[in-house]
Design a protein around this nucleic acid. Structure first.
Lengths: 337, 337
DNA sequence: CCATACTATGTAACCGGTTACAGCGAAGGA
DNA sequence: TCCTTCGCTGTAACCGGTTACATAGTATGG
């Protein structure tokens, strides 16, 4: 026996489908006893409204599509958690779709959402603006997170340049001068901005025009490899600033392997403040990931209900989190939670 | 101008809607030039099929609902990653919904999925079987993960009892006898099973009928608090087995605060093997979280297409991961990745 | 040359809701 | 008593697709 439909309920309660709809959706213009009969019939038949049908006729799905790049661990968890919290508070569901590096994938992911969601949150640090805009559905509101977006599209950005600058100044402030940067994958927006911020800051505050830059790809292994290469090359360095925490962790492992002490001989810093960073006492720039996710949903739902200034672009400054990997060794890192 | 519909495309291509549908869905019975005209028209109008309408008429949403309890960090990320990978490989989307401890929440979450998804993956270690089954939609296939389920419902379970037993035997094997257990929240299935396994194993292999059990709630702070209470109480213990890794981490922090050395004076072990555990050299039972997520989706989609043995219950044994917190201190933990 | 089979296409019903509009009975006013 | 108004209910169109069935056109065989 298939699930009961609204017509089954109508038959059972001996009313029309319109009355059933009205009764169950809390309309005013219905007699109390009719409503009671309908509710009883629905209960008896175990009726549950068909959300798909409803969203078709109401042109409102009460769902928002989330398109993310291939999900790097904790980052993913955090942003989805933030979105989910906000979305469920506002009565929305989250429809997930991750796209891989391939552009066709992205197109497919975006298209598959049409007619299923009321709006989109898109995060695509690896696509360029033109490609992205060409593939965005025209009539679906969207909020872009960390994307190379054209102006006029609602967007949330992390101030990577400013964050890198803050970190460089912190390192300089602890007396380090020979700072190496390990980059993220080429083509990645965050990676490029962090590198640019690093270069800018080194020129401006250290007077270094051509600082040491090692290629990486955001993975722990890349951080370790870059560090081993650095050591093998005999470069003299007193700090490594990795473009994200995972690589910074890789750096630390490689340094320990090589018997280099952190932070005495070489300081290490990362970017993101993933949960592991705290336990490893890693100095990093905290990106409020969950907060950004929540905000993206807030912005989107506001836009859907006509509130707020949709086109605004917001820049979120990460916050410096100083821990033991860049400070003089004083017994133990702080135990703040 | 609203999004183009299939009728707009039909008008543009001067054919019927049926032909448009056939042309775009790769049906055989359509002339090549007709198909070309349709494709051109669709392209010109920027037509994207309305997934909601399609799933209504086909009674197939190509989406699976995921209902999770309030998401504890890494666990969540891992299981969703596993599901997403498998789901997108099979052409399914994931519709997320987290329910909080409240039962009404759970009911609401389950109902809201009807008509939006083809099946459900439900994880609810805090609800009891009767409640759960009463609230499961009747005609929606579902796979339960770590639930108190009636038999006959497809389910995936972690062998918590066996895992706890393995850990106890490991600790006994390293010479520890006075082992305390820090439990998870009461009412939680995993917590109860792990406690039961601990008690069973202590009786059977250590001859201890009433081992020391400290209440916890799976949080880092609870682990620390339990440990402080233990120390303050002057209990003599040479190992702490926490019901999950977060609490084990809390234990380690509290022990360090108190100047107790790990593992020399007290060994510490956890359960789950969250990513952080490796970096902290925490001995733990590895639960293949992502694998279970992927498997849940596989089971569900198989069931949807009539393959596989739907009603089977599978038990997944976690694997002992020995690290430095339970082994004699020999300079440094292994650096395996 | 006509019956038959097969192919390409169109028409309209259907999926399961919502809702504009029409209709009907009762109450109120003249 | 009749007309208007109002409150409740039902009918049917609609959302945007898919698809069973009918039909027209063409090729095939006797």
């Amino acid at each position: 026996m298939a699930q009961a439909t609204i017509r089954d309920v109508a038959r059972e309660a001996e009313v029309s489908v319109a009355s059933v709809s009205r009764a169950l959706n809390g309309a005013e213009n219905i007699r109390a006893d009719t409503r009671a009969r309908v509710v009883a019939a629905a209960e008896k038949l175990g009726y549950v409204p068909h959300a798909g049908a409803r969203s078709l006729s109401m042109a409102r799905a009460h769902a928002i599509g989330v398109v993310l790049p291939d999900l790097h661990g904790e980052f993913f968890s955090e942003i989805v958690r933030g979105m989910d919290k906000e979305a469920s508070a506002r009565g929305f569901h989250l429809l997930l779709s991750n796209m891989h590096a391939d552009l066709n994938d992205a197109v497919h992911a975006l298209r598959a959402m049409r007619g299923r969601v009321d709006g989109l949150v898109v995060m695509a640090p690896h696509l360029d603006a033109a490609e992205l805009m060409r593939n965005m559905p025209q009539n679906v509101p969207a909020v872009l997170v960390n994307c190379r977006a054209d102006q006029g599209t609602p967007a949330l950005l992390v101030d990577n340049v400013g964050g890198a600058d803050t970190m460089v100044r912190h390192l300089l402030g602890t007396g380090r001068r020979a700072i190496a940067h390990v980059t993220g994958p080429s083509g990645n927006l965050d990676a490029e901005e962090r590198l640019a911020g690093f270069r800018l800051s080194m020129r401006r505050h250290a007077g270094v025009d051509d600082p040491l830059v090692l290629p990486g790809d955001f993975s722990e292994e890349a951080g370790a490899a870059a560090t081993r290469a650095l050591i093998a090359g005999g470069q003299r360095v007193d700090a490594i600033f990795a473009a994200n925490d995972m690589m910074a962790i890789g750096c630390m492992l490689a340094l320990r392997e090589a018997g280099v002490s952190v932070p005495e001989q070489i300081a290490v810093a990362g970017f993101d403040d993933i949960p592991v960073a705290r336990y490893l006492h890693l100095t990093t720039m905290r990106v409020p990931i969950a907060g950004i996710g929540a905000l993206a949903v807030t912005r989107l739902t506001d836009q859907l209900s006509g509130r707020g200034n949709p086109a605004a672009t917001e820049l979120h400054a990460p916050e410096l989190e100083v821990r033991a990997t860049t400070t003089a060794h004083k017994k133990e890192g702080r135990t703040r939670t």
